[in-house]
Design a protein around this nucleic acid. Structure first.
Lengths: 250, 250
DNA sequence: CGCGATTTGTGCACGCCTTCACAAGCGCCT
DNA sequence: AGGCGCTTGTGAAGGCGTGCACAAATCGCG
């Protein structure tokens, strides 16, 4: 996992709280719920009414036992002998993830990557709406990108007062990211998605997730390196030996 | 983790192999090595000659004990009482990650996101070179993006014969991703970075890592939902109570 | 109405990862 | 040369996550 901390120590409400909203789902489960949701939407559009754990697990690319355990954490929404009601499960997962309420997102840094993020379809289709773009470069301020006008970063506090922005996306160079994060936190943002290759320091109540495209490639590079060194071994069986396909997908 | 499988079952060379190239590093460690590497480069540019585990851990945003254990897996490259030699450690990590050899990358799908990826600085600065762009849209073929000409996806096999391409990046819509993956595998690609929101089915010797930007936002949304429900509790202490800063960064 | 087929929900064991705590080793200062 | 402080490397413990295997539950059919 590449994000840093998630409020582990401060358990807060100890136990037997009236309505804790959610019985502390495992972080690993939370990370998989969006994948289940996407698979469910696909199945629903395909006309499926119910789906078995086996089928849904295949569509999501996970083990069926893992899926059942994940879903059991948010209650019993399946029917034994039948499976899960697709529509009901979609509704439940969306509620748990808080997707039933539209969340405003602001994006800071409209360079190469930020430009693409501003027009990314996947955000809007999942209920996220980018409501403001910011950049520190004066030459970019005023530019219209995918229907939104780029504001100067200094206008962030003002824009934040007009609309509650809970999530901020940082797509600036690494050198500017910490300052931007500070401004976002100051403006009331409590969740940050950071594309800049650096560590952010934020208050404990702010969640940060980091996406570093270069890191992903470096991890793949390691596996390439490993595979190459295996095939180069004197008596090593070639890495292409077990060429069995995965049985996922439809 | 969002990637699927990494050759867990087929252990291959059982044990006591002559030179296994690497004593099977834990996957979690591998995922952190690039972060350490970035921190080391920063420290090196700052003029640091040696760095303690505490300092490096802070720069990388992790626990110092975790960092020491991670580094211990690739040998003893530190000096007790002093710390780690920055230049030596950089060299070691780059070797382990296979970054000492330049790896050719091809990118399929030059839409919104692919366009940005083609020009992303972070790739080249880490030894990755995008050598070819592909797209299925005839109107995009021939277009020049960041110094590279877009080829039609059907030309992939031919281009792959001219230069060995180990890593492929998929930035197409979900519907086209599986077909593209099949073509990449057919062309000899053994590592895929998938930005399309779907599950890919590939042979066991091919590594797939998935990056889904919408999923990251949904995970943040969950935490927003959780935080909101906590503050709304009758007797719940406000979530902004423990506002201590993290002591990371410089 | 009962029975078998099917599928969920879950107790349990195993393995990976994290964290603590400390011995071992190194350099510096006197 | 000897001692002292600092830092690494690691053994051990605990927690988390995964996967197996099976009991419980539901539907359909005779």
């Amino acid at each position: 996992m590449s994000q840093q901390r998630h409020g582990s120590t401060s358990g807060g409400s100890d136990r037997a709280n009236a309505v804790p909203a959610f019985p502390d789902l495992p972080e690993a489960t939370i990370a998989r719920l969006p994948e289940y949701l996407r698979a469910l939407h696909n199945l629903g559009e395909g006309g499926a009414d119910t789906i078995s754990s086996e089928g849904l697990a295949a569509a999501a690319g996970v083990n069926s036992a893992k899926l059942r355990k994940d879903l059991s954490h948010l209650g019993s929404y399946g029917t034994r002998g039948v499976g899960y009601d697709v529509a009901l499960l979609i509704e439940q997962i969306e509620y748990v993830l808080g997707l039933d309420q539209r969340r405003a997102v602001c994006l800071v840094g409209v360079g190469n990557l930020g430009h693409a993020l501003a027009g990314y379809d996947g955000f809007a289709s999942r209920g996220f709406k980018i409501v403001a773009l910011f950049d520190a470069d004066p030459t970019k301020v005023g530019e219209r990108i995918h229907g939104l006008i780029v504001h100067h970063i200094d206008e962030l506090p003002q824009v934040a007062t007009e609309e509650t922005i809970a999530i901020g996306v940082i797509a600036t160079p690494a050198g500017a990211a910490q300052a931007v994060a500070d401004e976002l936190v100051g403006a009331g943002v409590t969740s940050i998605l950071n594309f800049a290759p650096c560590v952010l320091s934020v208050p404990a109540n702010v969640d940060v997730r980091k996406v570093d495209l270069a890191i992903e490639l470096q991890i793949l590079s390691f596996h390439e390196h490993r595979k190459a060194s295996l095939t180069a071994l004197p008596g090593g069986r070639s890495a292409t030996g077990a060429g069995n396909q995965e049985a996922v997908g439809s």
